Amino acid sequence: MAEVLPVAEYQQASVEPIVNRSVNRLRSGAALSGGLAHDYWQGEFVTAPMMRDELGKWNAFLLQHGDAKSSVLIGHPHECRPMAYTTLLGVNVAGGGQFNGVGTVFSITDLTSITVNNLPSNFMLKMGDWIGIEEGGRATLHQVMADATGDAGGSVSLSFLPPMPLQRTTAAQVRFEKPVGEFILGKVNRQKFGTATVLSYSATSRVT
C-alpha cells in the first residue's frame, strides 16, 4: 500500500511522460522504431517555503518512507480535476447524491479504453485531463487522450494512456478529483531561506 505525502503548497510542479522508444536507421534509409519498455511518468516538484512544523512532518515521513522500496501517492498538485470544472463540490451524481469525485468502471474495452459510471449527468472530459485508476490498494495515473462527454445517466466512455495494468477489473474505481498514482521518490534537496526551508524532489511512477 502506497503512502500519502504530507500536505504542502507547491511553487512549481511538472509531471511529464517518458516515452521509451528506439529508432534505428537502416542502410536503405528506412527508419524502424520500437518500444523498449513501459512508458512512465517523471515528476519534478518544488514546495513553497516551509516553517519548522511543516518541515518536521516531511522529515519524519522521509525517514519512514523515503527509501527506494516505498511507494508514495502523487498527482499533479496544480491540475486537480477535469479542466471543464473549477470545482466538483456540490455537483450531484446522475442517480442522486453528491459526487465525491470518484466513478466506477462499468466495462473495459481494452487497456486504454473504459466506460465509467456513477458520474454526474453529461460529465465532461478534455484531452489531457488526469485520471487515477485504483483497485486492490494499487493506483496508477493516466491522461485522457480525447475529449469525451457522458450521457444523462452518468456514464462516459474514455480513452487514456499509459495503458492500465492487466490486473484491473470492473471492480476498479476512477478518481477524477485529485487523481494520484504510485511513485518512487528520488533525492530530496533542501534550500534555506531565513527560518524557512524549500524542498525540491523528483519522483518516478511505479510500473505496475
Rank of each mutant, 00 (worst) to 15 (best):
I18N: 11
T87W: 05
P179Q: 14
K57M: 11
K187A: 10
T87P: 05
S157T: 13
V91P: 05
V93D: 03
P165M: 12
G154R: 01
G154D: 08
Q167W: 14
V144N: 05
D53N: 13
L141N: 01
E177Y: 11
Q42H: 09
M1F: 13
L161S: 13
M145C: 14
G153R: 11
G150W: 06
S200D: 02
A203T: 01
D129K: 04
P163H: 07
L63Y: 03
V102A: 10
L161F: 08
P163F: 08
G56Y: 09
H142G: 04
A146I: 10
K192S: 13
S14D: 09
E54W: 06
G96I: 02
G186P: 06
L185T: 00
F183K: 01
T195Y: 11
P82E: 03
L88P: 04
T140Y: 05
T87M: 07
S22V: 14
S107C: 04
M83L: 15
P77E: 07
A94T: 05
T47H: 06
D67T: 12
A152Y: 10
S33E: 15
S121R: 03
G154S: 09
S155F: 04
S202R: 04
Y40P: 01
R175S: 09
N117M: 05
G43I: 03
N24I: 09
E44A: 12
M1E: 07
W130I: 11
T169L: 07
P49S: 06
E3G: 02
E16D: 13
T104P: 01
E135D: 04
V188W: 00
I114D: 06
D110P: 02
L32C: 07
V46C: 11
V19E: 07
R168C: 07
G136S: 14
A48T: 08
G136C: 06
R21W: 08
L32D: 06
V7C: 01
M50S: 05
M145R: 14
L141I: 06
A48D: 13
R52Y: 10
M1P: 15
V180R: 09
G34C: 02
F176N: 01
V72A: 03
M127I: 14
K187R: 11
H78G: 11
G75A: 09
M51N: 13
W41R: 03
E9A: 13
R175P: 02
N100K: 10
L73Q: 05
Q11N: 13
G97F: 02
G96E: 02
N122V: 08
T87I: 03
E44K: 13
